[in-house]
Amino acid sequence: MRNLITFIRKYSFFFLFVGMEALAFYLILKNNHFQGSSFLNSTNKVAGGIYTKYSDLTEYVNLKEVNDDLSNENRLLRENQLGSFVRVFGENIIVKDTIYKRKYLYTKAKVINNSTHRQNNYLTLSIGFNNGVQNGMGVIGPSGVVGVVKDVSANYSSVVSVLHRESKISVKLKKSAYFGSMQWDGEDYRLTGLKDIPNHVFLTEGDTVVTSGYSSIFPEGLPTALIKTFEAPEGENFYKIQMQLLNDFRQLTYVYVVNNNTSMEVKNLESGRENAND
């Protein structure tokens, strides 16, 4: 026993080091779980507050791009407005019925912290569960998917960016509706990869890739990326595709959190199915 104590005493510095490393790695592994909230991240009061102050200071730098994006979005919305359509023939009858029900609600949020240079990138938003944000909600930018909410505190939320090596977003080709998964390779913040597209599908460079809507996180058909290059490696059944992201992740300032009213229903149904399989 005494030998043990002298042994520990002698190497106490080393044991302290091992203990601290163990604690650090415990935190890393805990953080790698996709869901789950923790206090120690940028959604806490101090870090979130400092980031808010800082982004208030630097906001004007991006104003030009933000205005550009907003006016583009406005143009799109205006194009789809009823007033921009002209009646070609016949008489229209408006029937009020219950066929349509609201499925998606959008909440505006400001990006107060963002990174693109790491292997696993996160964003911090200026809204939290006081504004109705919940874990697992989707986040979209002016042009396409941005990420999925990971941690929520009262006034801030932390988002796993598309530029995260573990993030997989279900997408499909706009033209042919073949679906695959969008996954980042950690290299360039403007490019991302597309997997699981079988090599008999006809592709051209510049094809639009939209969200598939299978995940019930994002609305279907949201343009997200353009195909930049593709090749069919020999002996494999799937293409290797590089896509150009439509969002400029360096300049994200305002984004929307997507609330799907039916997501609980879909989740319950699907978990019931998995249980039935067991």
Binding site: M20, L23, L27, L29, S42, A47, R118
Partner: peptide, 19 residues
């Protein structure tokens, strides 16, 4: 780490440096 949402990453590297 708290600021960059990289829980434990910088902590482990810094502890290594401190050691």
């Amino acid at each position: 780490d708290v600021f960059t949402d990289t829980m434990g990453m910088h902590a482990s590297a810094c502890v290594f440096l401190g050691f």
